[in-house]
Computed example of a mutant assay.
Amino acid sequence: MIAGTEDGSTPPDLVRETAGVIRGARFALIRGAGHVPPVDKPAEWAALLARFLEEIAHV
């Protein structure tokens, strides 16, 4: 799960806690991103997603 530090509607701590109860989930935080990190920081979001997909052998 990827959260933005500036997300006011889904605070990063809530996202971190949610990831903690989902088996196999990972948590990442993008500084300066709001509620939609792929729009605010597309390159950082894409890099995190690509790394995750490589780690779980989906690419």
Rank of each mutant, 00 (worst) to 15 (best):
A33V: 01
P42F: 07
A3V: 08
A43N: 08
W45P: 00
L48S: 05
K41Y: 06
P37S: 08
E6Y: 03
P12T: 00
P11I: 12
A50M: 08
A28H: 07
R31W: 01
L14W: 12
A28N: 12
A28V: 00
E17C: 02
I30N: 00
D7A: 10
A47H: 07
G4I: 00
R16Y: 15
G24C: 08
H35Y: 09
T10E: 09
S9Q: 12
I56K: 15
H35P: 05
V21K: 07
E55N: 11
R31Q: 15
G20A: 08
H35C: 04
W45S: 12
P11T: 11
A57V: 09
A25E: 08
R16C: 05
G32L: 02
T18L: 13
W45C: 11
H35K: 09
L53C: 13
L49Y: 08
A25Y: 12
I2K: 00
P37I: 00
P37E: 05
V15A: 14
G24W: 06
A50L: 15
D7G: 07
V39N: 04
R23E: 14
W45H: 13
A3T: 02
P11S: 14
I22F: 03
D40H: 04
G20E: 00
H58G: 06
P37Y: 03
I56L: 14
P12Q: 07
E17K: 15
A19P: 00
I30Q: 00
M1R: 05
L53H: 12
T5Y: 03
G20C: 10
R51M: 12
M1F: 15
E17A: 14
E6G: 02
F27W: 11
A57R: 15
A25G: 10
A25I: 04
E6V: 04
P37A: 05
R51N: 14
L49W: 05
A19F: 07
D13P: 00
P37W: 01
V21S: 11
G34K: 01
A28E: 14
I56F: 11
E44R: 10
